[in-house]
């Protein structure tokens, strides 16, 4: 693989689940790539399919009722359909994942040091002493004070922020080329969130890892991401470089998201430009554009025709002509458009 080839290339990834209500299509064919050392922010609300996309990349969807199709190529190797053993050589070693709740990745009955050590030993043959030294070094690298004491602590003795750091230390133990993070700061207080985001930014600089960061918080994306993917109803609706998406978002849903967030500075709007309605049920997606029932700009075609991603480096899936959308977006600073119908 050449040095500048993308680290991860996902093509037409779809995830469906058989259920009593018929087929539930959680991810409806998404394509994207992650460059080496790139931080990609995936934004979406609950049910948008963002977590399922991550789980599919990790090969963690193993329900007998799940159907995963498409292609996920990591460093040139296809991950879909890969045998468990071959997958295990990649997972944890080259791709690591962290979750919203650090306790889901920690067992309460072992010390932090043991758990980081287990991770190291699973992928490398090293002496017990070297394992311990490495664990201390990792805890230090993620900004834990007194790492040689914390290493002998149990998870319950640590605060939420410390636990998330410990989990990140575990994830970093084998220098993964790709770190996949699902809402890693959502359960944390803002001051702790700021610390963890700073840490994630440092990971790329120090360890050279690429990061896929899934979050519902556009502020978090603005803080750390290089590129942004916006998901709705199991598909991407917008993709682009951070500055381009934040300066001139191209999809009405992205406008709605920006309008929904109360500003932290300047005058307060009398009302927030909220998006009316609720996100669609994945078992009963609307025909055509999934966002159309909530969209202030929909026209007849939106109800029948599925929009596809269009554009060069900054792309969006919307049937409105792009010049029209650019015009709408320019009407208000930040591209925020009132969504009241």
């Amino acid at each position: 693989m050449s040095a500048d080839a993308p680290l991860l290339v996902v093509k037409d990834l779809a995830v469906s689940f058989r259920s009593d209500e018929g087929l539930v299509r959680a991810v409806g064919g998404v394509s994207f790539s992650v460059e080496q050392r790139e931080i990609v922010g995936v934004v979406g609300e609950s049910g948008s399919g963002k977590s399922q996309t991550l789980l599919a990349i990790m090969g963690l969807i193993d329900s007998p009722n799940a159907i995963v199709s498409g292609s996920i190529r990591f460093m040139g190797q296809e991950l879909i359909g890969l045998k468990r053993r071959a997958l295990d050589a990649i997972r944890g070693r080259q791709i690591a994942m962290i979750f919203q709740d650090p306790m889901s990745a920690l067992t309460p009955v072992h010390t932090i040091g043991n758990q980081i050590g287990e991770q190291v030993r699973a992928h490398e043959k090293v002496s017990a002493k070297a394992v311990r030294a490495r664990a201390v070094q990792l805890l230090d690298a993620v900004g834990i004070a007194n790492p040689d004491r914390v290493i002998d602590s149990y998870p319950h003795q640590l605060s939420g922020g410390m636990r998330q750091r410990a989990v990140i230390a575990m994830a970093l133990s084998c220098n993964p080329a790709l770190l996949v993070a699902d809402e890693p700061t959502t359960a944390l207080d803002v001051t702790v969130q700021a610390q963890i985001l700073e840490l994630i930014g440092r990971l790329r600089d120090q360890f050279g890892s690429a990061v896929i960061l899934v979050t519902h918080d556009l502020g978090v994306v603005a803080e750390v991401a290089d590129r942004v993917l916006v998901m709705y109803g199991g598909r991407f609706v917008e993709e682009g470089g951070k500055s381009s998406v934040f300066r001139a978002p191209l999809h009405p849903y992205t406008w709605g998201l920006f309008g929904s967030i109360p500003p932290m500075e300047g005058p307060r709007p009398a009302r927030l430009a909220a998006i009316p309605g609720i996100p669609p049920s994945l078992s009963n997606l609307p025909k055509g554009c999934a966002f159309s029932p909530r969209c202030a700009f929909r026209h007849d075609a939106c109800l029948v025709q599925l929009p596809i991603m269009q554009g060069e480096s900054h792309r969006a899936a919307c049937l409105l002509p792009e010049p029209t959308r650019r015009q709408f977006a320019a009407q208000r600073p930040g591209g925020v458009v009132e969504m009241q119908r």
Binding site: L218, A222, F246, R247, M264, G334
Partner: peptide, 12 residues
């Protein structure tokens, strides 16, 4: 500190 820790959804 609390105020400055809030991530702002803007790059400008």
């Amino acid at each position: 500190a609390l105020r400055s820790a809030v991530p702002i959804p803007s790059i400008d």
